[in-house]
Design a protein around this nucleic acid. Structure first.
Lengths: 225, 225
DNA sequence: ACCCCTGTGACAGCGCTGTGACAGTCGGAG
DNA sequence: CTCCGACTGTCACAGCGCTGTCACAGGGGT
């Protein structure tokens, strides 16, 4: 059903989950440390990662953050603790779901399927923002039914904004997501791209209704109403 | 768009969904109980079933299992509950997708289309893209009725593209699908093959209407209109 | 042995993209 | 209300990244 990477240091748990997930029809590869996991991720490109939080060396949160720097694939965090603080830190590190141990293979499998479906939906369904329709599968954007010719960067920017509708994204975040930069040396890079995108997307680029400026922060994609 | 059977006991929900799906262009028949639904299924042979879990008499899971004993048609389960256990039982009963109520007609429509697409992809029928007809069974491609002499690689490329019509595929993905490579060492391999394919398939290879370039991504097979 | 397919590298053209300067705008402080 | 500073919008331009194209050589099949 899916190609999973399981990162878990406890051998008993790892083996049990691997068997459970394999029995549910998934293809599973495993790693015992964060480093090994990241290496396997690069080499094998799994569809989804199941990641223990308590790991020797770099912990699960850090692994999560590192993965998110370059990859968009779904991550399910696994932990023995159930405090809220963990959930918050986990989701802030970029995880898609959170499962508390002890967990049964069947339940984990259900979460895996749920996250995969969510991912499919987000990545493939059309998103609508007023007159704008974003078809993530075709990688096209239409306005009032007509095709918009967006450049690759404009398209990536719009896609990232549309993945978090109504949420303000800082220039810093956008640089990481769209440009994969880490430094922000006071440049008008993001603004310039937003301007070009607005020119194509907005009815009146000078008073944007979709891509709103959040002063002191960055930008946000709104859907009218 | 599709011929649907909706099985739902609550009259308000049934009517609302029926209207919503009809408005989206589907032909819809309805049943209020599992028994009636199974009877309608045998009599009318719909393309897809939308099935409520909570039904008087035999419940949705059981209906699902009974359908699966004899039929392969897609099933979307509908439920008010969102617990994991439901999802697990649902998918194990043989459902193709799972939607949690309350659901809007538009959302359900998106799922219906997604499930239908998934099914189409596996079909072996002939596919038509403008003047091009791809016969997957005979493994032949004709243009305006005349046979095209495609090389094996060109044919595989066209088949993979046509299995995902309208969907942009990256060079990376195409390499995996057509060439079964994993590495993409900045080569013009995909481009060159696309060029050769275009030369045979397109009316005007220099301004392709079928195999479109998606700048920054890869290629996409469109059917005109 | 021959031929056609296939992968590769080179190359050119196009247009995207980043940059810096400057103008315009907003909001807070006085 | 006014002013000021900080933040954002806008623009033109130069560089270069991306894609289309082509010729060629190796290899596999006939």
């Amino acid at each position: 059903m899916a190609f999973l990477l399981l990162i878990e240091d406890d051998e008993a748990v790892r083996t049990a989950l691997e068997m459970g997930l394999t029995r549910q029809g998934h293809r599973v590869i495993t790693a015992a440390t964060g480093e090994d996991g990241l290496k396997l991720l690069r080499e094998q490109r799994p569809d989804l990662i199941v990641l223990d939080v308590m790991l020797p060396g770099i912990d699960g949160f850090e692994v999560c953050r590192r993965i998110r720097r370059t990859d968009q694939l779904p991550i399910i965090l696994l932990t023995a603790r159930s405090d809220d603080i963990d959930v918050v830190v986990g989701l802030e590190s970029g995880a898609d779901d959170y499962v508390v141990k002890p967990v049964q293979g069947r339940v984990l499998d259900a979460r895996v399927r749920a996250v995969m479906r969510r991912g499919e939906r987000e990545s493939n369904d059309a998103a609508t923002f007023g007159p704008i329709v974003i078809d993530r599968a075709a990688m096209t954007v239409t306005k009032d039914g007509e095709d918009l010719q967006l450049t690759p960067t404009e398209l990536r920017l719009l896609l990232e904004l549309s993945r978090r509708p109504g949420q303000a994204l800082s220039r810093q975040q956008l640089l990481r997501l769209v440009w994969e930069h880490d430094y922000l040396g006071d440049s008008r890079l993001v603004d310039a791209c937003v301007q070009r995108l607005r020119a194509k997307v907005e009815d009146i680029p000078s008073s944007p209704k979709l891509i709103r400026t959040v002063r002191g922060v960055g930008y946000r994609l709104d859907s009218p109403q």
